[in-house]
């Protein structure tokens, strides 16, 4: 698509809403507006796809195991807490 075929003033407005769109937090009208726009605007489509992939990748962030020593220490600390409920 050439620069002249498309009015990009709308892009910024939609750019702000792309996360809400990915999270299904927009109403039907706003969703349709974005869907219509990205069909016509390649840069916005690219932006949406790269943002979506970022979210997917973020969800893959790895978890570490709790160090055993710490787990043991935590258990001991909590075991030694006074067992009576605090006043008030």
């Amino acid at each position: 698509m050439s620069k002249d075929e498309h009015d990009h003033r709308h892009c910024l407005e939609l750019f702000e809403k792309l996360s809400e769109y990915l999270d299904n937090e927009l109403d039907e009208v706003a969703c349709k507006d974005i869907e219509k726009h990205i069909k016509e605007c390649v840069p916005c489509f690219v932006c949406l796809q790269t943002l979506k992939r970022t979210v997917d990748l973020c969800k893959q962030a790895e978890n570490r195991m709790v160090p055993e020593d710490f787990s043991k220490k935590l258990k001991e600390v909590l075991q030694n807490m006074p067992k009576t409920p605090p006043a008030g």
């Binding site: 698509m1 390649v42 840069p43 690219v46 796809q49 790269t50 992939r53």
Partner: peptide, 14 residues
């Protein structure tokens, strides 16, 4: 400044 096609990293299988 903006890319005009979806880059590989955003479209290949995760």
């Amino acid at each position: 400044e903006v890319p005009h096609q979806v880059p590989d990293w955003a479209q290949m299988p995760l």
